[in-house]
């Protein structure tokens, strides 16, 4: 491992969290403009996190309650380590290896499970409802997501993200055009993963008072918010790698990830919240059907 790689390994979580939080801040601003408001500044989320880290925190509900946010952010950072971020002249690969796509499918769930354990120990009924909703929703969107990844793996006969990026050498070869069925299934799963409006049944502030983190405050909440920004960045980079041909430099990366980020954002602004069973019906009906059609076409 080269020294450059070690520097990136340390710096990338911070850069990723900053970019992710900035995106969420911009999304708050865009939402405000759609609702005919002025909205907060784009860096509002970063101010929020500085404030949360400066708060005193005196809550305890047991060991897992303290470990939950830490394990969540550990899971997210380890996911980041296996996602190829840049593939140009100055590549940032960190720990990519043959078969990392299968690892990613598992390790992306780790953070959610850690948060579920931590929130579950807080003993708050709202947390418990939020956790059960979150796990149910995860069962929902994992199905189209895994089908979309299997389509790509079968098509390119590899389970390495780097090989999939290399196969998309020109714009016409991007997977968004070459396997549109896979893209549609994956983007539907993406809506569920991002937790934007139609699928924010987990956090639902008006119903279950922000769900799993309802007992977390102060520094724990800061850790969770950082995790949220970083996880958004990781998912965006992974989708860019898989469907938009990766990124050669940071400007391309930001353009592509932001374009992807706008899809759930704009769907979220104009839609109300689904109920849990409606979300499950959605995930298991259309994206799964389209994914299966794509899979059959690839196998033929």
């Amino acid at each position: 491992m080269s020294p450059m790689n070690i520097i990136w390994m340390i710096a990338m979580p911070f850069i990723g969290a900053a970019i992710g939080l900035l995106y969420i801040g911009i999304s708050r601003n865009i939402t405000a403009r759609v609702q005919n408001r002025f909205g907060p500044p784009p860096y509002q989320n970063i101010i929020d996190i500085i404030k949360l880290y400066s708060k005193k925190t005196a809550i305890t509900h047991g060991v897992m309650f303290h470990l939950g946010p830490v394990l969540a952010i550990t899971g997210t950072i380890s996911t980041l380590m296996f996602v190829p971020i840049l593939t140009g002249n100055y590549p940032i690969y960190l720990f990519s290896f043959q078969g990392d796509l299968i690892l990613l499918m598992y390790i992306m769930v780790f953070g959610c499970l850690a948060m579920a354990l931590g929130a579950g120990q807080s003993g708050n009924p709202n947390s418990a409802i939020g956790v059960s909703r979150g796990l149910t929703q995860m069962f929902g969107y994992e199905v189209p997501f895994v089908i979309a990844l299997i389509i790509l793996m079968v098509r390119f006969d590899t389970s390495s993200v780097l090989d999939i990026i290399k196969a998309q050498d020109t714009v016409a070869h991007w997977n968004i055009f070459r396997s549109p069925f896979s893209f549609i299934a994956a983007i539907a799963a993406f809506l569920g993963m991002m937790g934007n409006k139609p699928f924010d049944i987990v956090f639902a502030p008006a119903e279950i008072s922000s769900g799993p983190p309802s007992e977390y405050g102060g520094k724990y909440l800061a850790l969770m918010q950082t995790n949220r920004g970083l996880f958004a960045f990781v998912k965006l980079v992974l989708y860019t790698d898989l469907f938009l041909g990766g990124a050669g430099d940071f400007i391309t990366l930001i353009l592509k990830t932001f374009a992807l980020f706008l899809i759930p954002l704009f769907i979220g602004i104009v839609n109300p919240r689904f109920r849990t069973e409606q979300a499950m019906t959605f995930f298991w009906k259309w994206p799964t059907a389209i994914g299966v059609v794509g899979l059959v076409l690839v196998l033929l």
């Binding site: 408001r37 907060p40 922000s210 007992e215 909440l221």
Partner: peptide, 15 residues
């Protein structure tokens, strides 16, 4: 629009 000053509603007292 109080959100332009960074004033947001939160659902639980912990936050």
């Amino acid at each position: 629009d109080a959100e332009r000053f960074g004033i947001t509603g939160m659902a639980t007292p912990r936050q």
